[in-house]
Amino acid sequence: MRYVYVGPDEIRARVRPGERGAPIGSADDVRRRLDARERDERDEPFTYVVDLGGSLRLAPRRSEHVACAGGEPVLAAGEVAFEADGESVAVAAISNQSTGYCPGAESWPAVAAALDRAGVRRPDGFTDEFVFRRCAACGGLNLVKDAYFVCALCDADLPEPFRTS
């Protein structure tokens, strides 16, 4: 499944043509990204997307997913933290948390495949999985917490699954 950007237009408008997150094709690429982080970012996860070609791309956590994707649709998006120990690189935590793309749990196979191609050890699924819904009453985008399927903007029920494509 592919996900199109559904976030605010003003955020999409800030995407610079031709700029995207750094492609990750190997554990060494992850190590370079870890080493290149600023001191105040060292304990933060990365923003990631899996582009339509299946490549994992990383950007600093404070970046927007749509910028990491260069404004394009994605196969997955979220946040990821890594552990590097000698030659080995592993995912320490990974989520599908992206309110710009709202990827579902079904995006995991694209993430797993990208991590496997890069030779990065990974868990069997998201360590933190999020559920998104669009409110039929007001059109608001909601991140469902604690299985509370009620719109945070207008208190309407959120019964229908959110789909972006």
Rank of each mutant, 00 (worst) to 15 (best):
V6Q: 07
T99C: 05
V74Q: 02
E64T: 13
A113C: 01
E44Q: 13
K145H: 15
V4H: 10
E38I: 04
L56I: 00
V30Y: 02
A112H: 11
P109L: 06
W108G: 08
I94L: 03
A59R: 13
A137K: 09
E87W: 06
V91F: 00
C135H: 04
V30R: 04
E129R: 15
A69K: 10
S95A: 10
V91Q: 01
A90E: 05
G139V: 04
D124E: 14
E10N: 14
G18K: 15
G70A: 10
L115N: 04
I94M: 05
V144K: 07
D9N: 15
D28Y: 05
R31G: 01
Y48W: 02
A36W: 06
C135A: 04
P161L: 10
T127A: 12
R57S: 02
A93S: 13
A112V: 06
R32M: 08
G25D: 03
V50Y: 01
R2E: 11
P60S: 11
V120E: 03
E10W: 14
R133V: 07
L58W: 00
P60M: 09
A22D: 06
A136K: 07
V89Y: 00
R20Y: 08
C102T: 13
L153P: 02
E79G: 11
W108E: 04
R12V: 02
M1A: 15
S26Y: 07
Y3L: 07
F132Y: 15
H65L: 04
G25V: 00
A93H: 08
D124L: 05
R163I: 06
E106H: 08
R57E: 03
S55G: 14
A118N: 04
G125V: 00
T99L: 11
A114R: 06
L115A: 03
S95C: 09
G140Q: 14
R133W: 10
L158V: 12
Y148P: 10
P73L: 11
A67G: 09
G7S: 09
R39A: 10
E106L: 08
V30W: 00
C151Q: 07
V4T: 12
R122I: 01
V74M: 03
F149R: 14
R37N: 08
A110T: 02
V144N: 11
D124V: 02
F46I: 10
A69V: 06
D128F: 12
T47R: 06
R62N: 13
F130C: 04
A84R: 15
G70K: 09
P161D: 14
F46K: 13
G53V: 02
A59F: 03
D85F: 05
Y5P: 07
A36T: 04
A59S: 14
N96V: 00
R20N: 14
A92E: 08
I11M: 11
G78P: 11
D29S: 15
F132C: 07
